[in-house]
Simulated assay, not measured.
Amino acid sequence: MSELRIRAATPDDLDTVLAFWKAAAEGTSISDDHAGVQRLVARDPEALLLAEQNAELVGTVIAGFDGWRCHLYRLAVHPQRRRQGIGSALLAAAEERFVRLGGRRGDAMVLNRNATAHHAWRAAGYAPEEKWRRWVKPFADRPAP
């Protein structure tokens, strides 16, 4: 098997990433569209990390840093490529990015019902923080500036 390559996504990768998430990621997000991912890459060109083997996309993670906290989203590995170290390599690259930027702790958005993901995150050293609950408010009804 060829070497795993991890790199930042470019605007040319967006359609491929969106199609990949449909096949490899659990659940959907309000931002899982071309405009949402395009804004992410334009605002922070190093946040969306891609794992490739033989020029094929096999994994992703969003490693967002807002200057205060390190947020991990969309850790996804192709279903036929799981348990081969791809997720671990993506998380290591994300963590290296965070440390380089001055981050102190990573937090991950993980679906409650995704037991497979819970095992992967625990194996990488992450644990749920039961004292916190995520609160959300969609802005879909507000016009963009």
Rank of each mutant, 00 (worst) to 15 (best):
G27N: 10
D44P: 02
S29A: 05
A93T: 13
G103R: 07
A89E: 13
G103H: 13
A25F: 15
L75W: 00
C70A: 12
M1E: 14
W68T: 09
G87M: 03
P45V: 06
E129W: 04
A35F: 11
R7I: 14
A63I: 04
N112E: 13
E52C: 02
R83E: 03
R82W: 00
W132K: 10
P11Q: 06
A92R: 15
A115P: 01
A23C: 13
R134T: 04
P79W: 13
P128G: 00
P138C: 01
R69A: 08
A108R: 02
A42S: 06
G87Q: 03
G87D: 03
A63Q: 03
I86G: 02
I86M: 12
A108M: 02
N54F: 10
A117G: 15
R134M: 04
A92C: 07
V17I: 15
I62F: 05
K137T: 03
G64N: 09
V99I: 09
Y126H: 00
A55F: 10
A120D: 00
R74I: 01
A93R: 15
N114D: 15
R133S: 05
F65C: 05
Q80I: 14
L57F: 07
R142I: 06
L14A: 06
D32N: 07
L4W: 12
E96P: 03
M1H: 04
A42E: 04
L72H: 00
L48Q: 09
G85I: 06
D13H: 12
A63N: 02
T16F: 05
V61M: 00
S88C: 12
I86A: 01
D13T: 13
F20S: 07
A124Y: 01
R104H: 14
V58G: 02
V41I: 15
G87C: 03
A23S: 09
A144I: 03
R113A: 15
L40C: 11
R122P: 01
L50S: 12
A120I: 00
L111N: 07
L49D: 08
R100S: 15
G106V: 11
R74M: 06
H71R: 07
M109A: 11
S29R: 11
W121V: 00
R97S: 15
W135C: 04
A144F: 01
G67D: 01
V41T: 12
N112C: 08
A123T: 08
V136K: 10
C70R: 03
H78D: 15
A63T: 02
L40V: 11
R43V: 06
A124H: 01
V136E: 13
A92P: 08
A123C: 08
L90H: 13
L40P: 10
A108K: 01
R74E: 04
E129S: 07
P11V: 03
S88W: 01
T116V: 05
L90S: 04
S29P: 04
V99Q: 13
Q53W: 09
A93M: 09
A140Y: 08
T10G: 14
D141C: 08
L48R: 06
R81S: 10
D44C: 04
A127S: 07
H34S: 09
R5N: 05
R7P: 09
P138S: 10
L40F: 10
G85T: 04
A94C: 10
